[in-house]
């Protein structure tokens, strides 16, 4: 199947919701084209609102729409939506426990050439500490569409982290999507890759490479960063004894941190975290950047091997 950006899956899901639920409305701050909410706008112009380039007002207006019973999707670039709208997300959306959905496109390094200012690498950290917030990062366009539809059915605030660049479709149309439930994409007993977003594909590829060396890695797609699937993480810790996390996000406070919070308190096992190492993004071709920031399958393989050396009674070793 051709590569497709997750934002496209979101745009398709939003149109589908528009057809099935007259309460669904969308709004944007002049980035509806980038976030693919423009497809909704074209089909349901009366239910789309522009508030200009004003993300604080964008989130606040979405909150008001929800207070009056609508099901709003506020859409923008991840960085501007979360960066500028964070206080509004906290008070207006989360504290009031409103049914507001927030879709941030251009998350991660995949903005590429635009550079650091638009490359959101911190939203998981910013958002997962907000009470009532749900944080979802789909791994491909199919999953993004399902996540969008699931977000609408999931009561309360939901943030969807979407990407700009085409990525491979690695899930199947018939795969279920449940908010908060990790999906296992590959079985294995030597270690577990827990990945989110576009790094899920890299984890699968890394697992293939390891398999050729006799190391069997489990791969979990943790599309919901919050609420986190503790059971899946604990099974991975118990059954494989070692965990590598992978995310297109800073290693501080993101998926890796969220997994570690579960692991260290309930079943400590050695971990490695693959992510952006406490730095800003930069301009470049997205594929180049993923290499430069060490987010490629070979980086995951390296982290896995390093981890297996630290793992007590390491599986796959002869000693």
């Amino acid at each position: 199947m051709a590569n497709k950006p997750t934002r496209d899956g979101f745009g398709e899901g939003l149109v589908e919701l528009g057809k099935s639920n007259p309460n669904v409305v969308a709004l944007s701050g002049d980035l509806e084209d980038s976030a693919r909410a423009i497809w909704f706008k074209q089909q349901f112009p009366d239910r789309f609102f522009s508030v200009g380039i004003a993300e604080q007002d964008l989130v606040g207006t979405a909150a008001g729409l929800a207070m009056a019973g609508k099901l709003p999707f506020a859409c923008s670039f991840s960085q501007f939506l979360v960066g500028k709208g964070l206080e509004q997300m906290r008070l207006a959306v989360c504290y009031q426990r409103l049914n507001v959905k927030m879709a941030g496109s251009h998350g991660g390094l995949s903005v590429g050439a635009d550079g650091a200012t638009a490359e959101a690498l911190e939203e998981f950290a910013h958002l997962r500490c907000l009470p009532h917030m749900t944080v979802i990062c789909p791994c491909d366009a199919l999953e993004a569409k399902k996540a969008t539809i699931a977000a609408a059915a999931h009561p309360g605030p939901v943030y969807l982290r979407l990407g700009r660049n085409p990525v491979p479709i690695i899930t199947k149309p018939e795969d279920p999507f449940t908010v908060g439930a990790a999906s296992q994409l590959r079985a294995g007993q030597d270690l577990t890759f827990i990945a989110t977003g576009v790094l899920v594909a890299h984890a699968l590829e890394a697992a293939e490479q390891l398999a050729r060396e006799g190391i069997e890695a489990r791969v979990l797609n943790l599309h919901t960063i919050k609420p986190i699937d503790q059971a899946a993480i604990l099974s991975a810790a118990r059954e494989t004894g070692a965990i590598v996390t992978a995310e297109e996000h800073t290693i501080l406070g993101g998926l890796g941190g969220a997994v570690a919070e579960v692991v260290v308190q309930q079943h400590p096992v050695p971990m490695r975290m693959v992510g952006v190492m406490d730095r800003f993004g930069t301009s470049g071709d997205p594929a180049e950047l993923l290499k430069a920031f060490h987010l490629m399958p070979e980086d995951l393989v390296k982290a896995a091997k390093d981890l297996l050396r630290a793992k007590p009674h390491a599986c796959g070793s002869k000693t």
Partner: peptide
């Protein structure tokens, strides 16, 4: 909001109410 009858909105972080008023008005128009 909702803690007491008649409290329609949470506030305390200044500057946010008018955006919510607008959102409510947009919904009401629909």
């Amino acid at each position: 909001r909702g803690s007491l009858p008649g409290i329609e909105m949470s506030s305390g972080s200044l500057g946010q109410g008018l955006s919510m008023a607008n959102g409510i008005a947009l919904a009401d128009r629909l």
